[in-house]
Design a protein around this nucleic acid. Structure first.
Lengths: 344, 344
DNA sequence: GTTATATATGTAACCGATTTTATGATCCAT
DNA sequence: ATGGATCATAAAATCGGTTACATATATAAC
């Protein structure tokens, strides 16, 4: 099978028919005599003919490609989502073009440009920031709205967003997290937030605050540590927090990185989760489970989030006119040894 | 800018020139008068013209796309590699088409087929298995060898492999790991291996064995636990291991999943790393570092491995005839509290 | 002043498929 | 027998670029 690649023209000539007939065979379109079909299929088989995707794409003016634009694939949150996306892509016979923007708006723009030129079927987008919050972001947002390619947004929900999205109910997650911590006996809570320029972050804070209020507690301003969803800042804030004379009973961390930053500080302070302080975080951290560390979390099915994102996109491609589709991914608050300890 | 998409024909007509001239402007090929160029560029600018990648690909008979085929992106080992690849892809203005094969040979084959039809520049491949070990694998191997697309292999090194590769020196890694454990005072060691159908796994075992021998020790057959690189099996083997009357001083685990399986068993047996037993594993596990757990490891720069893979591929595309390129990624054995404890 | 060379642009073929249109048969039904 | 479906295939246009070749003018060299 080495040597030159066979084209439709070669197949047609060998079969003694026109290119059109070969094309009809491949696409099962129009009429083809049974015998002609057999002959052509035989030739395709023996010469291992594969139609050029490049040519098909151009003539059909469409591709079987979906663009995936994520802010940080090295974060398990996103690599789990990506895993889900790849599964469904395999099922639907779609190819994925991946862009890892590393939270860089310029790279995000570049990704859109490339994907637009490629005439992708659609785009799954995990935005680095909430676009409406910055001038640059609003510009990009405006441009994206002109875009004819279907887009599904992951884990962001900015106002007046015209696109389908897969989301978590951040407010409710945090609300329930607060309740569970309370039920376990904790009374004094602190929060390490994510980037307050992001709605998901504000929602998590407000949900937690409301949860405490409905338990008759008040989240004090000095118990809110404003972070940025990254380990480093969370660590710094946690060191502050853990240096206080009066420690809170429990701390709520806003994402997996925030949790890790807090754990780093705990280790440095030689403190133990579940003894000195209870910890509840957004997102499970597999290693902590394995180690049996009493880390409570809002468990969220990120793999399913990825699967759902591509399914929504497919749905949108089929029915471009249907109403906007928002899919809420289920979550579960998992309590693990976050009872208030006597030791405190 | 809403409405129809502009093509080269439109640009040419508006500028009052031929398509060829517009093409020459875009590609900086041939002669174009300064003024003509300006006029054309102006029009392209105002109408936000973007050449159709589909058409460019077909006429040039090449793409700016690299295929990435990985066995399990949800494993941080591979998502870190992928991260490295995406970085270099951005630098080189290449697009990535991603396939996650989930260790499924059928999906691997499918990926190759799709990529072949797409005329990708090259492929970065993390094979699910060592192809020469199975009939199916040998078939695939044979077919791949007929393939004209450049391939760079990640983390596998099977005999007579004709492709460039980025590898770790598994034998040496393990050899040195053994030495370091010995230096720290450990005498009785056990190993949990990966899949013995894979050379990387055999190399790790043999390197470790040789390391011990050069320290005057012998790795006993009953201290070798033959696993498969997955958490589950490693956990089962570890439970066996930890149920022995005589525990070894140290255990060497062959990859991150193997390590996690062992840790799970340790937790279940209420045993503590660095007290009951020392642990040395292949690959760092970030969370363990953060928690300050005395987990020694062969630290390997997977991000760099990804970067290097794409660089090698680019090199190969530029110089198809050059001799085969094997790149060894540096590693470091990091000892963290693996001294033999008195407690034992 | 002619010839060679560099500059500038247009024409048309080409990449490899799809798709519209056209053209013959064949098969019925009336 | 004839008009109208149904079936089968071919020819040619098309998708949106690139590129080899042709043509024309300006400039330089002899």
């Amino acid at each position: 099978m080495a040597g030159r690649v066979i084209t439709i023209k070669d197949v047609a000539e060998m079969a003694g028919v026109s290119k059109a007939t070969v094309s009809r065979v491949m696409n099962n379109s129009g009429y083809v005599a049974a015998e002609t079909r057999r002959k052509i299929e035989n030739i395709m088989e023996t010469y291992d003919y594969m139609p050029s995707t490049l040519a098909v794409n151009l003539s059909k003016q469409e591709t079987k490609v979906v663009g995936v634009v994520l802010p940080e694939i090295e974060n398990t949150f996103y690599s789990d989502i990506l895993h889900g996306i790849t599964q469904v892509a395999d099922e639907l016979d779609l190819s994925l073009v991946l862009f890892d923007t590393q939270n860089n708006l310029e790279r995000e723009k570049k990704a859109f440009r490339v994907l637009q030129q490629q005439k992708v079927r659609g785009i799954i987008l995990g935005p680095s920031v909430d676009y409406p919050e910055t001038e640059e972001g609003r510009e990009l947002l405006a441009r994206l709205k002109e875009y004819s390619v279907p887009i599904v947004i992951i884990d962001r929900d900015f106002a007046n967003m015209p696109w389908d999205a897969v989301l978590y109910e951040n407010y409710q997650c945090s609300y329930q997290a607060a309740l569970e911590l309370y039920k376990a006996g904790n009374r004094k809570m602190a929060v390490i937030t994510g980037d307050m320029d992001m709605k998901i972050s504000r929602d998590r804070l407000e949900g937690f605050r409301k949860g405490l209020e409905d338990c008759g507690l008040t989240l004090q301003e000095e118990d809110i540590y404003y972070g940025d969803f990254l380990i480093k800042r969370s660590y710094e804030l946690s060191m502050e927090l853990l240096s206080r004379k009066e420690l809170p009973d429990a701390v709520y961390t806003s994402n997996n990185q925030t949790t890790l930053g807090f754990l780093k500080a705990m280790n440095e302070k030689r403190m133990v989760i579940g003894e000195d302080i209870a910890l509840m975080g957004n997102d499970r951290i597999e290693t902590l489970d394995i180690l049996g560390i009493p880390f409570s979390c809002v468990y969220r099915d990120n793999y399913e989030m990825g699967r759902m994102a591509l399914r929504l996109l497919q749905e949108r491609v089929k029915h471009p006119k249907k109403a906007r589709n928002i899919c809420m991914i289920p979550y579960q608050v998992k309590l693990k040894g976050s009872e208030k300890r006597k030791k405190k």
